[in-house]
């Protein structure tokens, strides 16, 4: 099985923006690139993990509604971060793991993009020193 993030697109993007604020500036092709990288990574994982990730995103969205009366996508990035920080610092390992897993996926999607590498000034080149001198 391979998971599609389409079913949780809005909350997933809202989470990505909380983890990496610059992702808010992505255009639609940029988001697709990010999401397909994440989907590709999830596809390599057991089905149970894929389902758990989607479930976790849904639970976070419900939690946002319960605490703030709005879905994740309608919260400010700061409010989303506050929610995620609480969970990340939680005494429950399962919650901390969940946030860590989502954060890892968001970083994977965002920082694997060639545009991102260039924008942060990462310049490694196969030719090494020769490319710099």
């Amino acid at each position: 099985m391979s998971v599609s993030l389409g079913v949780v697109r809005d909350p997933f993007r809202a989470l990505c923006i909380a983890f990496v604020p610059e992702s808010a500036e992505l255009n639609e092709p940029g988001w697709r690139e990010l999401e397909s990288e994440v989907e590709r990574a999830l596809a390599d994982r057991p089905t149970a993990i894929q389902k758990q990730m989607v479930l976790l995103i849904r639970i976070l969205d419900l939690l946002a509604r319960a605490r703030h009366g709005n879905p994740l996508a309608a919260l400010t990035p700061a409010a989303r971060r506050e929610l995620l920080t609480r969970l990340q610092d939680s005494r429950w390992l399962l919650l901390r793991r969940g946030v860590w897993g989502l954060r890892t996926l968001a970083f994977l999607g965002y920082y694997s993009r060639p545009d991102t590498a260039a924008s942060i000034g990462y310049r490694a080149d196969l030719r090494g020193w020769e490319a710099r001198r």
Binding site: F19, V20, R103, Y111, S112, I120, A124
Partner: peptide, 13 residues
């Protein structure tokens, strides 16, 4: 590399 660095730093935002 960028992703591994991002993943290894604590926190987000």
């Amino acid at each position: 590399f960028p992703f591994i660095t991002a993943k290894n730093l604590t926190g987000f935002g």
